[in-house]
Design a protein around this nucleic acid. Structure first.
Length: 643
RNA sequence: GCUGAUGUGGCUCAGUGGUAGAGCAUCACCUUGGUAAGGUGGGGGUCACGGGUUCAAUCCCCGUCAUCAGCUCCA
């Protein structure tokens, strides 16, 4: 058979294993080989090849090797758990970004205190360096073994494997687990690992199923790499908006106000207000007009929109349908409110596109375990907008919405961290969505064409659509690597019909407009959270809650400092004075810790010269400036939104 | 909602079955000091909240609330 290697094609006998092929290339390669990639599919070294194929040898250096290592570490964990807790039932144990996890069903629950014991057992298994043997079995054989061992979850998992697929089992010592593989050659190849935490996870990711105990760990090639990982985690923790945002007095929470209801402190409010003004002005420049609609409505409205059926659990409902004549609900979105502005009179194609924006406060009754700092809250304010247009206008208007979003991301400095997700419906979960298959195919087809024409590099998210239409979600990760939607642009051809929104076209016929639901910068709370993490609290001048701290050297310079401060305040800068009778070094240190972009230290030298001295956050000083020169520096930096 | 962890002055954290401590912050006084912490002294805590056990609970038990990690969810 012909095997196409990286640089050449070579002839091998049928039945030669990947490891043997690696050895024939070089012994060195065989030593560092971890797996093979056969026609793009990761495969164990022990697998014998039978047909012509392309083969790449995956070595320890390749990123895939880490995944294999981590997956093997998961099996070592499973073996250790089965040794200590023979009654524990196995579920699944894949690799993750930095490590692995395995889901178990324990007869009696374990806690974090049990982890060291399990780790110790894992070390024994690693030291024993069991060979990891791959066996191809039939589905029937795998099922029988799972039944014999009482592995109730494995029985279900094996049952889900398509009949025509090869089933493989991996054995290390006395432990065997059904698994797609590939794996390291032996347990001794797991070098550096640590069990990190324990959490609940539903079997097969479905909350209707039993909750299993998930044990998480990290694994690396070397101890030093693992140490670096923990150092990186420490660094991430320092940027965490939930910690830094509180330290810098941007926001706080109060237990008797409630979960998901943060208090924006003056500093946080200053940032949000700056963003909001910027967003509203920019939207106006791009042809958006604003509405101001109620924060609540009778249930009737939500019944028309479909929210009552599809989203009632997520709403704060005021009153009881059985007892009260009128039941209200706080709004979880702006759509049906803003549509009323469109419906205010009969519309013509000449009115389109109609771009309606609103700085809109929404309320969503998130489950108690969902709330997170400023990223997931129960009340938030979003730069909302709905755009009604004709089918011909759809593509260019969608593009305009995307350009606005990208402009915002770039200005904020978040663009490089964002990725795109084309969120589609799940045809197998019809309950979640309104509309027909044809409508969904049409809307998604239109969006796909638009995205492909724009050359947007997206990944597809099945089942991530809104109940009324597909979305382009702009995703961003927090310091811990957890992803959330920052911005969304959606195409909706269903709600217009539900609300009877029409326009009279050139031909005199009434038609439903397309609606684009979009946000230009997302929710201010969430965006603020990512900004805190992005800048580690050291905001660009235009966004900084305190732009300048004026510091006097001694009492002798207080009057002068006050005078300078007042003159600068007339320009609208956000200034704080620190005229306390403390030493200059002390006051500078404090301003530094608050990450204020500019300090102005004024003493007798400045009084004598009639000038001021600026000190940047990085310690750089600009001396002998007039107030006018300071204004010039500030205005330039603020207007250009320099990062 | 579920699993696990946490909750002690404004913040970071010690601590104990016999009604609590440090550093930072705050306040007062001294100091008027030129680019990341000057000195002295003082005030401040129903040990998240509510029950229970106990002669006695911040500590043990139960419940609630909040915070964190994860799962599910996320219009």
């Amino acid at each position: 058979m012909k095997i196409q290697l990286r640089d050449e094609t070579r002839e091998f006998e049928k039945g030669t294993t990947i490891l043997e092929i690696a050895s024939s290339i070089s012994e060195g390669l065989a030593r560092v080989a971890v797996a093979g990639r056969v026609d793009g599919v990761l495969t164990d070294l022990s697998v014998a090849l039978e047909d012509d194929c392309a083969l790449e040898i995956v070595t320890q250096k390749d990123p895939e090797a880490k995944q294999i290592l981590r997956h093997t570490a998961a099996h070592v964990l499973a073996q250790a758990v089965k040794t200590i807790y023979p009654t524990a039932k196995l579920s699944i144990g894949p690799a993750t970004e930095d490590g692995f996890y395995y889901d178990f069903d324990f007869k009696t629950p374990i806690t974090v205190d049990d982890l060291p014991k399990i780790e110790a057992e894992m070390k024994k298994i690693i030291k024993a360096n069991f060979e990891i043997k791959r066996n191809v079995v039939t589905k029937k054989q795998a099922l029988k073994r799972a039944k014999d061992e009482g592995e109730t979850f494995k029985i279900q998992l094996i049952g889900d494997i398509p009949d025509d697929e090869t089933v493989t089992e991996y054995t290390q010592g006395d432990f065997t687990d059904v698994c797609r593989g590939p794996h390291m050659r032996s347990t001794g190849m797991v070098k550096a690992f640590k069990l990190t935490r324990i959490a609940g996870a539903y079997f097969k990711g479905d909350s209707k199923n039993k909750m299993l105990t998930r044990i998480y760990g990290v694994a690396f090639d070397k101890k030093s790499e693992m140490d670096e990982y923990f150092v990186r985690q420490e660094e991430a923790m320092k940027r965490d908006h939930n910690k830094l945002g509180r330290e810098l007095e941007i926001f706080t929470t109060v237990d008797y106000i409630g979960q998901g209801l943060p208090i924006l402190l003056p500093k946080g409010t200053a940032i949000v207000q700056t963003m909001q003004r910027f967003v509203e002005d920019e939207e106006a420049k791009r042809g958006w007009v604003r509405t101001k609609t109620p924060l609540m409505a009778k249930s009737d409205l939500y019944k028309i929109s479909g929210h009552w059926d599809h989203y009632k659990d997520g709403m704060f409902v005021l009153g009881d349908e059985k007892e009260d004549k009128e039941v209200f609900a706080l709004r979880p979105m702006t759509c049906p409110f803003q549509y009323q502005a469109y419906l205010n009179r009969a519309r013509s194609y000449k009115d389109l596109p109609m771009r309606l924006a609103e700085t809109s406060t929404l309320f969503r009754n998130e489950s108690s375990g969902e709330m997170h700092g400023l990223i997931r809250v129960r009340q938030f304010t979003i730069s909302e907008g709905h755009l009604m247009c004709t089918p011909e206008q759809l593509e260019s208007e969608f593009k305009g919405c995307l350009e606005l979003a990208i402009f915002m991301l770039k200005t904020m400095g978040l663009y490089e961290d964002a990725s795109y997700r084309f969120s589609q419906w799940d045809p197998n979960d019809r309950d979640k969505y309104i509309g027909t298959v044809e409508q969904w195919e049409e809307a998604q087809g239109k969006m796909k064409t638009i995205l492909d024409n724009l050359g947007i590099p997206y990944k597809v998210g099945v089942g991530e659509a809104a109940f009324y239409g597909p979305k382009l979600d702009i995703q961003i990760k927090n310091v811990w690597g957890k992803e959330d939607t920052l911005i969304t642009i959606q195409i909706d051809q269903m709600l217009a019909e539900k609300f009877g929104m029409e326009y009279t076209d050139k031909d005199g016929n009434k038609k439903n407009p397309y609606i684009i639901h979009r946000t230009s910068i997302g929710c201010y709370e969430r965006t603020l959270a990512y900004l805190i993490e992005k800048y580690a609290g050291a905001f660009p001048l235009w966004l900084a809650p305190v732009q300048l701290k004026v510091i006097n050297v001694s009492e002798k310079s207080e009057d002068y400092a006050r005078e300078v401060s007042q003159k600068l305040a007339l320009h609208g800068y956000r200034i704080e004075n620190d005229f306390r009778s403390e030493k200059v070094g002390y006051k500078i240190r404090q301003a530094q810790l608050e990450k204020v972009p500019y300090m102005m230290v004024l003493g007798e030298n400045e009084i004598a010269a009639g000038t001021v001295t600026l000190r940047k956050r990085n310690g750089e000083e600009i001396r002998d400036l007039s107030i006018e020169q300071v204004v010039e520096i500030f205005n330039k930096e603020i207007e250009e939104k320099i990062k």
